[in-house]
Each structure stands twice: as structure tokens, then as C-alpha cells.
Design a protein around this nucleic acid. Structure first.
Lengths: 158, 158
DNA sequence: TTTGAAACGCACGCTTA
DNA sequence: TAAGCGTGCGTTTCAAA
């Protein structure tokens, strides 16, 4: 993650707040809401994208609609030397793996995985994780139900 | 999460794939890519929204740009009876808490939290979590570095 | 469920303040 | 940086198949 030497003002914050809640809000609507000209908003949005303040625009899809009903967190102990993350990048390439975090303590990595069901998880662990050299052990936590799941950040007011 | 009695076809999958990668792709572009009329795409997108296949459109914002540089996972043991989730909903109301999962085993809940730094985390644990009745214990895992973090689902090909 | 036509509104570059 | 303007394009509705 890059260093950001950017100063965001309260108008930027408002734009970010709107975009975070509905990435398909059009320029004209944002402009109306903030009482500015659309061209000025467009200019700011482009800069926010350029400066990587806005990283991407995603549609959040219902996992159940695609039969991906099992969410799991797996702690992975590896032979990676501290500071190196070779295995982390291998893990990141697996499509079912949504997140890979290098964590403090001796667990190594924490990954978040979405599969259709328990069988899919077993399959992934056996046939994909099992094939990765250097994984010493894993500890899996199964999610029974998700009460909240979003990536929204707390945006400063004013 | 609701039951979904919807049949998605391969055109829907393609739309979802495009939208998942860039939620601001316009109708006309999707139509061109799929070789259909824009109005047909619009119709499908609206249905996908109605049926809650597409849940929302989010801008993914760089946490560093908003000085939220510390990510943590916290396991929370509570006095919630199994099957009840009173405390989970209290946790979900905290803005810094991005995720709340009810997990198997005796840990109770797993939450994902984003704060500015360690001081912010301590503050949250003391002043917010500490004020919630029924939390028996917590176990915190600090993220040193995030290698991958997204919510993209694996969409069936064809 | 798709298409095409038509009306309307928006995007976006340019110029000026 | 922001506003105002203009043109090309996208969006959206509707009738028809």
C-alpha cells in the first residue's frame, strides 16, 4: 500500500461517503447534493481515482445467489521466513480466497475463504492448499452466520 | 440472508462478472460487450437488483487515505445463548467494525475492526466493547500486512 | 425477454473567472 | 479550482414482436 501525501477536504469526504454507499451515483446527482457544478465533481472524482484514494468500484453480489454458502477463516502456519511472503502470494491467487493477511504471532497467515459447502472446503484444503509446499499446519474456523460484512470505512465528518 | 429461487443464466453471470469488476461500467458498454441492446441489459440489471442478487454498489476506498492503518480480528466470547445474537447486533452497530460473524466452537463471534492505530484499537476495546454487557473475553489478532482483500465471488463460467 | 426509436438527461472537454 | 456551456452519447421508456 502506497504512501498518500494527499490532503482531502470536506467535499472530498462527502464524495467518498456518497460513493461508498452507492458507487453508481452519477456526477449530476452528486453535484446537486453538494451544491456544485458537475464538472467540478467530475474533476475531483478523477483525482481521487488517480491518487488511489478510490481503489475500485465493486458490485457486491449475494453469495447465496451463487451457491457459495460457506464462509471460513483459516489460520495457516508456514515455513515462510518472517518478512517474506512467498506463500501468501500463492494463497492470494486462489479465487475462493477473498482475503490474505499476514498476522502477528506464530500463526503466520489468516485467510478468508468462500466455498459452496463443507465438501467444497474440504476439497479446497486437500487439493489446493494441500498442494502448496511450505504449509505446516492449518486451523479452520467455520462461520455459522454472518451478521455484518462490508468494507465501508469511517469517513470523517467535516 | 434470504432464499433465492432464481435461475441465473450465462448472460446474468456475464453481467455479474462485469459489475463485480467495475460497478460503474455503463449499460451501453455492457450491451456492446455482450452483443445485446442496452435496454435488455438495463432490464436484467434491474431484476438482479430486485432479486437481491446484486446487493449494493460500493466504492472501495484506500484505508491509508483515511488514516485507518490498523486492521484487527477479535474473537469475542459472550453470554449470548446459542442461537441468540443480541450482542452480535450491538457489535454490528459499531462503525469501525466491518464484519461480525457467528462462529462455530466456543469463541462466539469473530469481528473485523479497522482503526487508525494501536491506540485507536485500545480505545475502541476499552470505551466501546468494554461498555457492552455480556462480553466475557476477547482475543485479538493484529494484521501486519494485507496481501489480498476483496469480496469478489467466483462466478460460474458458462 | 428482446429490440428499436425517441426524448430526455448526463458526461466531459473547453473556456473563463 | 470552480462554473458555464455545448455536443455527443448514454439512459430510459414504450410499443411491438
Amino acid at each position: 500500500m502506497k504512501k498518500l501525501e494527499i490532503n482531502l477536504d470536506h467535499i472530498d469526504y462527502q464524495i467518498l461517503r456518497i460513493m461508498q454507499n452507492n458507487a453508481r451515483t452519477n456526477n449530476a446527482d452528486i453535484a446537486r447534493e453538494l451544491g456544485m457544478a458537475p464538472s467540478a465533481i467530475l474533476e475531483r472524482v478523477k483525482k481521487l481515482e488517480q491518487k488511489e484514494v478510490i481503489l475500485q468500484y465493486n458490485a457486491k453480489i449475494n453469495p447465496a445467489a451463487l451457491d457459495q454458502n460457506l464462509l471460513s477463516f483459516i489460520f495457516i502456519k508456514t515455513s515462510d521466513i518472517i518478512g517474506e511472503q512467498g506463500i501468501a502470494y500463492l494463497l492470494a491467487e486462489i479465487p475462493e480466497v477473498q482475503e490474505v493477511h499476514d498476522i502477528a504471532g506464530d500463526d503466520g497467515y489468516l485467510i478468508k475463504v468462500r466455498t459452496a459447502d463443507a465438501a467444497g472446503l474440504v476439497d479446497l484444503m486437500r487439493n489446493t492448499l494441500g498442494k502448496i509446499e511450505g504449509i505446516i499446519s492449518t486451523r479452520t474456523t467455520i462461520v455459522l452466520e454472518t451478521i455484518k460484512e462490508e468494507q465501508k470505512l469511517v469517513i470523517p465528518t467535516v
